[in-house]
C-alpha cells in the first residue's frame, strides 16, 4: 500500500453504529426504523437505575445495496458493551423476520449484521437470551433466500450467543481488530481458571480468536483492512454473490473429522489450529 492511499483511508472501526450502517448502504438510501427519537428504550435498565440509550444500542437501517433492498442492523458497542437486551434483541430479530417475509412476498431483501457485542445483556438476562434464540431462528430463515452477512470489525468483538449468530451467517467478514469467539476471556478465566485462559494475556487471546486467525482457519470468509471503502466493497461483492453453495454449520462430517484428528491431551496454539483447520475448513 502506498502512502497516499494510507492518508486517504478512513477507519471503519472509528465510526459509530449509525455511521457504519450508512457507509455500507447505497449513498442516500438509508432510512432508519425505530430510531432514537422513537425512544423505545430498555424498560429493565431504567428499573435498575441505569441510564438508557434512546435506540437501546441498536440501529435498524433500511436501504439498498447494489440497488437491492437491504437492512443493516448495527450494534453500538459503546453502549453497555454492545450487549443484547429485550429491545435491542427484538429490533434485530424483528427486522430479520420482516426481511424474510419480504423475500417470501417476492421482494429480495438481504441483511448485514454489524456485531460488536459481548452477547446477552446480563441486566436483562433471560430476555436477552430469548431474543438471541429468536435472532438465530430469523437468520436461519432469511439465509435460505438471501445472504445474511455478518461483520465483526472491532473494537468490542463478538461473543456469546451473538458469536453463534455470526456463525449462522451466510458470510462472515472480519478485520485484524476483531475478536470473535464464544466465551469472553474473563468468563473463561472465571469458570476454568487462569491456567486454562489468562484473560490479561492479550497476544494469546488474539492469536486464538482474532480476526486474522479466524480467517486463516476458515471460520470467517473475508479478511478486510479497517477502511470504509474496503468494507463497503467486500459487502457489495458478497451481496452480489448471493446465497452460498454450502453453509459452514452444515459441513458436519468435515468438522467432526477435523476434531477427530486433534490431540486433546495438549493445549493447542495458533499455528496448530491453522494446520488442522487451515486446509480442511476453507470453502
Amino acid at each position: 500500500m502506498d502512502k497516499s492511499q494510507n492518508l486517504k483511508s478512513n477507519s471503519f472501526i472509528e465510526l459509530n453504529a449509525r455511521e457504519r450502517a450508512r457507509s455500507i448502504l447505497d449513498t442516500g438510501s438509508m432510512r432508519e426504523l425505530l430510531g432514537p427519537f422513537d425512544r423505545v428504550t430498555s424498560p429493565w435498565l431504567k428499573e435498575q437505575g441505569i441510564v438508557t440509550q434512546a435506540d437501546d444500542g441498536l440501529v435498524v437501517a433500511k436501504g439498498t445495496i447494489n440497488g437491492q433492498s437491504a437492512v443493516v442492523l448495527g450494534i453500538e458497542g459503546s453502549f453497555q458493551g454492545g450487549s443484547m437486551g429485550e429491545v435491542s434483541g427484538a429490533k434485530m430479530a424483528g427486522a430479520l423476520e420482516l426481511a424474510a417475509e419480504d423475500n417470501r412476498k417476492g421482494i429480495p431483501t438481504l441483511a448485514v449484521l454489524l456485531l460488536e457485542t459481548g452477547g446477552v445483556r446480563l441486566q436483562e438476562a433471560n430476555l436477552g437470551l430469548a431474543a438471541i434464540a429468536e435472532i438465530h431462528a430469523a437468520i436461519a430463515d432469511l439465509r435460505q433466500y438471501q445472504p445474511v452477512i455478518g461483520v465483526v470489525a472491532g473494537t468490542v468483538g463478538s461473543f456469546g450467543g451473538m458469536s453463534v449468530a455470526g456463525a449462522l451467517c451466510s458470510y462472515m467478514v472480519v478485520t485484524r481488530e476483531a475478536r470473535y469467539g464464544l466465551n469472553g476471556p474473563q468468563v473463561i478465566e472465571q469458570e476454568a481458571g487462569i491456567e486454562e485462559y489468562d484473560s490479561r494475556d492479550k497476544p494469546f487471546i488474539w492469536s486464538l480468536t482474532g480476526g486474522e486467525q479466524r480467517f486463516a482457519t476458515g471460520l470467517a470468509d473475508r479478511f478486510v483492512q479497517d477502511d470504509v471503502d474496503s468494507m463497503n466493497a467486500v459487502i457489495r461483492e458478497l451481496a452480489k454473490a448471493g446465497v452460498p453453495a454450502s453453509l459452514r454449520d452444515q459441513r458436519i462430517d468435515e468438522f467432526l473429522a477435523l476434531l477427530d484428528s486433534i490431540d486433546t491431551n495438549v493445549q493447542p496454539n495458533s499455528a496448530q489450529v491453522r494446520e488442522i483447520f487451515g486446509k480442511g475448513v476453507k470453502a
Binding site: 453463534v164 456463525a167 464464544l182 480468536t209 479466524r214 452444515q250 493445549q267 488442522i276 483447520f277
Partner: peptide, 18 residues
C-alpha cells in the same frame, strides 16, 4: 469453557446444532 473450545470454534459447533 476452555482454550481448546475457543481455538477450534465452539461458536460454530453450537451454531451447527441450533
Amino acid at each position: 469453557y476452555g482454550r481448546r473450545e475457543e481455538a477450534f470454534g465452539i461458536h460454530q459447533a453450537l451454531a451447527a446444532a441450533g
